[in-house]
Design a protein around this nucleic acid. Structure first.
Lengths: 143, 143
DNA sequence: CAGCGTATGTCAGACTACTGACATGGAGCA
DNA sequence: TGCTCCATGTCAGTAGTCTGACATACGCTG
């Protein structure tokens, strides 16, 4: 009993997260992409050569789940993985030209949806929330 | 390409949400409760007599999913549903004494975990974030 | 050099949540 | 009254994610 659920930061966080998820789903549907798939592309766009495990950590899913995501995207020709590992067992992943093109479209769609969701807030408010919330994230994820 | 993912409010939101989810899972495990089950109990604690569909909406899952949650909790004797509907088809749900007891323990555990997660933020910062984020939530959910 | 611990990729099984569908009960209206 | 529309509860099938497990590859250390 938190008194009132609306007064719980956790509950409000969940509300906004759910709304964001729905908005992203709708924005990505025309591109035939799921949210995890988009997350994978976006991560690879900013950090080319990331391994399956690294992608999984940053997308907040397990290695096994990300593995399936990678396979689907590879079958669609959006990314490539080497057959042999250059070092250790990690297989560095790269976006293809098609992958980059799809990412650009998806990124615009998602950013538009996100922008609309947070439109009630000023840029200053958004910046403040982002910075404040970032301090709550364990640094192990940020590196 | 958002420039930098860390600068995307959506990504930070997802990070914090994932951290909260993990913290809640760990806090609830000793009580043998999942997050959706806890959400169900908490909602019933604050709004006794809520129907399956109402619970589903407020917990951000489908009616079908919430239906399974209710059954499990009913089998465990934490809540009761009437065999016949007093009005329409909606079956108003009530917590049992055991349900209330469990809810109290769970609520404390969750609140403690939540408190720790947001400990880097002052009360004033938490209040501000909560109010700001609340303005982004479609009012249809809040009613 | 051999052994241990750790990290990665992958396979298999179980579980959870979702989509689609159907029947039932009420409210609103011609 | 009879009809439509909507909300609810529930059943079945599907897809996604997780846990558990195993083999492999590297770094460290005695």
């Amino acid at each position: 009993m938190v008194g009132d659920l609306e007064l719980s930061l956790g509950y409000v966080l969940k509300q906004v997260h759910a709304a964001l998820r729905t908005a992203m789903d709708e924005a990505l549907r025309p591109l035939d992409l799921t949210v995890p798939q988009y997350a994978c592309l976006e991560l690879l766009g900013q950090h080319p050569g990331l391994s399956n495990s690294e992608l999984a950590r940053r997308a907040f899913v397990t290695r096994q789940s990300m593995n399936l995501v990678l396979r689907r995207l590879q079958e669609r020709g959006l990314l490539t993985r080497p057959d042999e590992s250059p070092h250790g067992r990690a297989l560095p992943t790269q976006l293809t030209q098609d992958g980059l093109t799809t990412l650009r479209k998806a990124s615009i769609a998602v950013r538009t949806a996100e922008k609309q969701l947070f439109s009630p807030l000023s840029q200053e408010q958004q910046r403040r929330i982002r910075e404040d919330l970032a301090t709550c994230v364990p640094s192990s994820v940020t590196d």
